[in-house]
């Protein structure tokens, strides 16, 4: 049996340990904020935090999250930085179709937790794994800078 916490809630799982965390969240926990985009850790749409580190849940098997603590977009607003990122995203009107945005927000939170005032270069390093086919990139960049100002 795999034990983990999701957004602070303890959970147990007894199914196929090879199932990626993504499908557990989406199909079993009905937490559909975390998106499926590529299934190969290439696009970032499925980004969650595992023990505080951003990770692509589409390639993270359940067996590897035994004992882990997961946080997802659904709980982002409970976090000070998360809330600031979401607010900045709205202020900058960043999303277009929105499908990549849960992942973008989760990656941005991870970045700002580590570096509260990131440079453009830092943004490139931390955010380039998140594809946005709508190419909302200029606004995403602005929104990260805005959130950085807010959390000062």
């Amino acid at each position: 049996m795999i034990k983990l916490t999701i957004n602070g809630q303890p959970q147990t799982f007894e199914g196929d340990a090879e199932m990626p965390l993504l499908w557990y969240l989406r199909d079993e926990k009905d937490m559909t904020g975390t998106k499926f985009g590529c299934g190969m850790a290439l696009c970032g749409a499925c980004t969650v935090h595992i023990d505080g580190r951003p990770a692509r849940s589409c390639m993270t098997p359940m067996r590897s999250v035994d004992g882990a603590s997961i946080s997802t977009i659904e709980a982002a607003e409970e976090d000070r930085i998360g809330a600031a990122v979401q607010a900045a995203w709205i202020e900058e009107q960043a999303p277009q179709c929105g499908y990549c945005q849960s992942g973008q927000v989760m990656s941005a939170i991870a970045l700002l937790k580590e570096k509260p005032s990131p440079t453009d270069e830092d943004i490139d390093a931390a955010m380039s794994g998140n594809i946005c086919r709508c190419a909302a990139y200029p606004r995403i960049r602005q929104a990260i800078h805005r959130a950085a100002r807010e959390i000062k």
Partner: peptide, 16 residues
Amino acid sequence: EGDCAGCHQWDGQGRQ
């Protein structure tokens, strides 16, 4: 940073 960091991560820990 574009195609690799998402999996391998900058500290080389490898996440997924």
